[in-house]
Amino acid sequence: MKHFTIFVSKNDMDDIESKISDVFAKVYAIKKNENEYSIKSKKLFNNHKITIRVASEDTNPDYFETNIPGMMGFYDRIPFEDENRKGLVMTQISVLNTMIAIETEKDMTDGQMQLFTKLLSQIGGIGFLPNGILLDQEGIVIIYPDGRSGPSAFKPHACTRKVLGPEVTSEEGERRRNKSIAFLTETGIPFLKGLPQLPPSGQCSFQTQEAIARRAVSLLIVIQYACDVAQGKQFDESKHFFIGMLQRFGVEEYLTENERQFLQEEEPNRKEAISISWQYEAYWTLIWALGFVETLNFPDQVCDCEYAIQVVSSCETFEQFYIQTAMRNKEEIMDEADKTYRLHWACVNSRIQGEDAPAGLDESIVMERRRGLFWMIGHRDEEWDTISMDT
């Protein structure tokens, strides 16, 4: 076997050269010509060359336009014994955008194979062998060509560029990102420099002050009902009371579709109730934006639920509540959204590594804050229930 190919979903190729050097430089001399690397042993009587070619959708668009569909067709024809694994493999192939093709002059040795899988581990992605075997980034078999599953606990990975499209940059977005990174650095939280900017505030479809206020009131009311359900209380009486509250404040139309269904269920789902009750943290961002909360503290402790309730319960009508609001400026909200986005990446990254979130972060709090902030700025015009949580 003379060929080993690494496929990966990456935002850019900037770190590939350093990873090739890390793996091969101790034993091999490396010469680079554009995106091709010629690698020869430093031993006197071993002149067999290894060639590594690097390509991406940017540098070789025709290759990816032709070969990725061909690769998908090849694995689609394999009789997978596990249809779920087939779905994972097909998903991974669909987002590949970078290739590292390795070719040896003679059949590769076990020692070379170890180096190639080490490079795979450094870069990530999947390893493709000419016989159709797919390896995960640790070199463990995902699938055999006869459809048998390997022992890999494989999950697909997509870079933000494939999920979100090419990054749109601006001076404002870069200033905001740098401000967030300075905060993360100061608090000792890891960050991904390549995580995309948020768009400048002028390109965002901000919710109006009134829409935020009405959403805040409707959300708090449905949260109170969800808390009763989660605690096993008599929900019929509770439902009647909180539907009356929605009507009194005139905010029924600001419920989401999921919330409407939850209120209409004859036997409300306790798991769904718990999920909705966590949205106290999203509600907290709304009342922060409306001026009721001075600062969004570091997200390692749940919000002050008693105060969160009192903000609305002290009012008899929506108008009485609304007249007390004092909307923060768009830049403040955008800054918090950007910071929370990067805190969420740190939480997800730690979870993937099997580690606790850094600095005591609570990922559930961070996620719900992100929901509220991204909804307010109109990120991608997504609805409340479907705010994407990609990192």
Rank of each mutant, 00 (worst) to 15 (best):
H3A: 11
S21L: 12
K31Y: 04
K40T: 15
K42I: 06
L44R: 12
I50N: 05
R53A: 15
E57L: 10
D58Q: 08
F64S: 02
E65S: 14
E65I: 07
G70I: 03
M71C: 08
R77D: 14
R77I: 09
P79D: 13
F80I: 02
K86A: 06
K86T: 04
V89M: 01
I93R: 01
I93M: 07
T98E: 00
M99V: 14
M99L: 09
I102Q: 05
Q114C: 04
F116M: 13
S121L: 07
G125P: 09
I126D: 10
N131I: 04
N131Q: 12
N131F: 07
G139S: 10
D146G: 06
R148C: 02
V163D: 00
L164K: 13
E171V: 13
E172G: 01
E174P: 01
S180I: 11
P190Y: 07
K193C: 00
C204T: 08
E210P: 09
A211H: 08
I223N: 07
Q224W: 02
Y225W: 04
G232F: 03
K233W: 10
Q234C: 09
S238M: 10
H240C: 12
L246V: 04
E252Q: 12
Q264C: 02
E265A: 15
P268L: 09
P268T: 07
W288F: 05
L290A: 03
G291Q: 04
L296I: 08
V312S: 07
C315D: 11
F318D: 03
Y322N: 06
D335T: 13
D338I: 10
T340H: 09
Y341R: 08
L343F: 06
A346M: 09
S350G: 06
Q353D: 14
G354P: 11
G354M: 02
A357Y: 01
V366F: 06
E368G: 00
G372N: 03
L373S: 01
F374P: 01
H379M: 13
H379C: 03
D385T: 01
